[in-house]
Computed example of a mutant assay.
Amino acid sequence: MRNLKIKIQYNGANYCGWQKQPDSLGIQGTIEKAIYEITNEEVKITGSGRTDAGVHALGQVANFKLNSKIPADRIPNALNAKLPKDIAVIECEEVKDSFHARYSAKGKRYRYLIYNSPYRNPIYKDTSYHVKYDLDFNKMCEEAKSLIGTHDFKGFMSSGSSVVDTVRTIYDVEITREENLITIEVEGNGFLYNMVRIIVGTLVDIGRGRIEDNLAEIINSKSRSKTGHTAPAHGLFLKKVDY
């Protein structure tokens, strides 16, 4: 069997998340259905990780095993003809049998969009977090520098996770602003459950003046009670996966 690697983009607004659910519409199951329609083969695709309900992707990666001889470069167009308009396969290549979309990953980069204005913008309603309060952008940028490096991010993990090792390495944090749109990008070797959304919520609370402790102190506390709120899912994008 061939091992095929695909790159996927999707707007997650209408889905329960990446993972296939028996009674809900997931990205994984939707793509598996499209593969069956073009190949008549039932496959299970493996993603680089799960994205929650409402989360989007610019560069989700998945792999699956297939007997069909359809050339890899023809598979994106074939799948996109069957997929709904809010999901697109943009790359496909045949890879070594040992490649695993999740376990072969070396790191990920996430993007989060904040629409910072007193009034909501309907264009960004499904793809950004509307924050109507004034934010100290410079302070947010300065405090975010403390995220870079290897730290125990236990305080930035939502309850319900079974992960024991909460040490992660953040390689880069980039925050930019263009008019009312603030973009936060975070790249690291791995992320805890809701870690990026809690980072964003903490930076927003710092920017609003609701949190007075500096971010380095908050990280060192390892306490969820010291970090900020969990930013909503619909502002989050999985931008890329590194292998």
Rank of each mutant, 00 (worst) to 15 (best):
S146F: 05
S161R: 14
L135G: 05
V173A: 06
F137V: 12
T166N: 00
I199H: 00
K108H: 14
Y115M: 10
S162P: 15
S158M: 12
E187Q: 11
G107Q: 08
I170W: 05
I199A: 01
F191D: 04
V163D: 15
H130K: 07
N121W: 04
R168V: 02
Y115T: 03
S117T: 06
S128G: 04
D165V: 10
A144D: 02
L181M: 14
R109Q: 11
E178Y: 08
V131Y: 02
T183W: 05
N180Q: 14
V173I: 08
I184V: 00
K108I: 10
F156R: 11
K106W: 15
K125S: 06
N116K: 01
S159W: 05
E185V: 02
R168Q: 11
V163I: 15
S162W: 14
M195K: 10
V173L: 07
A144C: 13
F137E: 07
V196R: 05
Y115H: 07
D165G: 06
Y171H: 13
N121G: 05
F137D: 14
T169L: 10
K125R: 09
F137Y: 15
L147F: 01
D134K: 14
M140L: 01
M140T: 00
K125N: 10
T183F: 04
L113T: 02
D172R: 13
M157K: 06
M140S: 01
Y119T: 03
M140K: 00
G107A: 11
H130F: 10
V196F: 09
K132S: 09
G107C: 12
S158K: 12
T166L: 03
S158V: 11
T166H: 03
E179K: 06
K139N: 11
L192E: 06
D136P: 01
V200N: 00
H151M: 14
S117G: 04
C141Y: 08
G201Q: 01
F137K: 08
S128A: 08
V196P: 09
E185A: 00
D172L: 09
G190R: 13
F153Y: 13
L147D: 03
E142C: 14
F153A: 08
V131D: 02
Y171M: 14
E143M: 01
T176A: 02
T150C: 05
V164H: 15
N138Q: 14
V200H: 00
Y124C: 13
I123W: 04
E179L: 09
M157H: 07
I114T: 01
